[in-house]
Computed example of a mutant assay.
Amino acid sequence: MRFLHSDGTLVHAAYCTNVHQAEDLDGVLGQLGRFAEPVREALDVPVLGLGLWLSCDVAHALAGDASLTARLRAELAARGLEVVTLNAFPYRGFHDPVVKQAVYHPDWTDRRRLDYTLDAATVLAGLLPGDAVRGSVSTLPLAWRDPWDTDRARRAELLLGELAAGLGELERRTGRTVRVGLEPEPGCVVETTTDAVRHLGFLDPERVGICLDVCHLAVQFEEPAAALARLDAAGLPVVKTQASCALHVEDPGDPAAREVLAAFHEPRFLHQTRRSGTGTDDLDEALGGLDGGAPWRVHFHLPLHAEPAAPLASTRSVLGEALDVLLGGPAAQVDHVEVETYTWQVLPHPPGDDAALVAGLAAELDWTRSRLTGLGLKEIR
Rank of each mutant, 00 (worst) to 15 (best):
K100M: 14
K100D: 13
V99D: 07
D96H: 14
P141V: 12
A88W: 00
D65T: 12
P90H: 02
W108N: 01
K100R: 15
A63I: 07
L128R: 11
V83I: 01
T85R: 12
H95R: 14
P97H: 07
T69Q: 00
P129C: 11
L142D: 00
G64E: 08
P106K: 04
R79Y: 04
L128S: 08
G80C: 13
G93Q: 14
P90M: 04
G135Y: 11
D65N: 15
S67K: 12
R112Y: 01
R92Y: 09
V137Y: 02
L124H: 08
V133G: 10
G93M: 12
L81K: 07
L142T: 01
V123M: 00
L140R: 02
Y116T: 00
L140M: 14
D119W: 04
D115W: 05
P106W: 03
L86C: 09
R113L: 07
D119T: 04
W108Y: 06
T122L: 01
G135T: 13
R73F: 08
R113P: 02
S136W: 12
Q101T: 15
A78I: 10
L76T: 09
R112S: 00
L86S: 02
A74N: 11
D110R: 04
T85G: 11
L118K: 05
R92H: 14
V98G: 01
L127R: 02
A63F: 07
T85Q: 15
L142F: 04
H95L: 13
L142P: 02
L128H: 07
L86Q: 02
A102Y: 03
L124D: 03
R73N: 08
D115K: 03
G93S: 15
A70R: 12
W144S: 10
L81Q: 09
T117Q: 04
A132V: 14
V103I: 15
S138E: 10
G135S: 10
D110C: 06
G126L: 00
S138N: 15
A143H: 09
F89N: 05
F89H: 08
D107G: 10
D115L: 08
A63R: 05
A74G: 10
V83G: 01
L114K: 03
A88V: 02
E75A: 15
D115F: 06
V98M: 04
L68S: 04
V123G: 00
K100T: 11
V98Y: 03
G130A: 15
A70Q: 14
A120L: 10
R71I: 05
L128A: 07
L81A: 10
R111D: 12
Y116K: 02
A70I: 07
A78R: 15
G126M: 00
A120T: 12
P129H: 14
P106D: 08
L68H: 03
E82F: 15
A77H: 09
A132W: 13
A102L: 09
R112K: 03
L81V: 06
S67R: 15
Y91T: 10
A121H: 01
S138K: 09
D115N: 11
L127M: 02
T139Y: 05
T117A: 06
T69L: 00
V137L: 05
D107Y: 09
D107F: 10
